[in-house]
């Protein structure tokens, strides 16, 4: 651990294990994310990085170990779990915008239904957020009428509308056409600069270099290496990381 955790710990995973049948997908995971920190999780497919990301808001349950947010254990279910999720933003690989609702409704639904914000306030805030991610003029359209890059930016706005303490990104650019990747990454870099706490699972090494405070490298369900982006890309310690980087950084 080359990078001592600076400010208060926001997300902490301790000795987390998870199995899918015989597959031990998360093996004794220990991870701390400090407030304002941007942690990028990389690794080959099947390494468990998406699963790790999804356990933080309990879209995936864990077998043992503990996950805390601001020192509080994740609630198991029900209203408390819903309340916790309201504070943890999530952006999915496949956007998952609500297909039957307009762009504006997608962003206002959470604030209105979960936080009890008035419709007019929620709309004002949503329009400002949509403007900020560059899709303000699309507010009245349905998700299917937007490009993938636009949909993903709306998904980011939808998560931000809940004023989350931490944002989880589960391969946010993996389903996008190459020319749309940067418009999404730009929004994420902006967010990182503004001090949002972020856990980002991605294959975009450019983003890791530009915006990450720390890179976590996973393979076969384990955290193999953790270091600053510069350290990780120029001087990886483990054989697995060297092997992985040699495969993706050749071009």
């Amino acid at each position: 651990m080359t990078n001592p955790v600076p400010s208060p710990v926001l997300v902490e995973m301790k000795a987390v294990n998870k199995h899918y049948g015989a597959l031990h997908v998360l093996q004794d995971i220990n991870l701390q994310v400090a407030k304002g920190e941007v942690v990028v999780v990389i690794g080959p497919s099947g390494s468990g990085k998406s699963t790790l990301c999804r356990t933080i808001n309990r879209l995936e349950t864990i077998d043992d170990g503990s996950i805390t947010i601001e020192g509080k254990e994740l609630p198991k279910e029900g209203k408390e779990l819903a309340n916790l999720r309201a504070d943890v933003g999530m952006v999915f690989q496949s956007f998952n915008l609500f297909a039957h609702k307009t762009i504006l409704e997608n962003v206002t639904l959470g604030p209105i239904k979960v936080k009890g914000v008035s419709k007019s306030d929620a709309e004002k805030q949503a329009l400002a957020l949509l403007e900020r991610v560059g899709v303000g003029h699309q507010a009245a359209k349905l998700p299917a009428q937007l490009s993938g890059g636009q949909q993903q930016r709306v998904a980011i706005a939808r998560a931000l509308a809940m004023k989350p303490k931490v944002m989880l990104f589960d391969e946010p650019t993996s389903a996008l056409d190459p020319e749309m990747i940067n418009e999404v990454l730009d929004v994420m870099v902006e967010l990182a600069k503004e001090g949002m706490t972020m856990v980002v699972v991605t294959h975009e090494m450019g983003f890791a270099r530009k915006a990450a405070d720390r890179v976590v490298f996973m393979a076969d369900g384990q955290i193999v290496e953790e270091s600053t982006p510069n350290e990780f890309f120029t001087n990886p310690q483990s054989v697995r990381a060297k092997d992985f980087l040699s495969k993706i950084l050749t071009n």
């Binding site: 879209l59 239904k113 979960v114 939808r158």
Partner: peptide
């Protein structure tokens, strides 16, 4: 209705009942 729809609903803090009535059923009825 794709499971992503209800995951996204849960991720913004909707309860099971809200997820069902606001997101899943309106799409299921179609």
């Amino acid at each position: 209705v794709s499971v992503g729809q209800s995951e996204a609903a849960r991720a913004i803090g909707l309860t099971f009942m809200q997820t069902l009535s606001l997101i899943v059923l309106p799409q299921a009825f179609r």
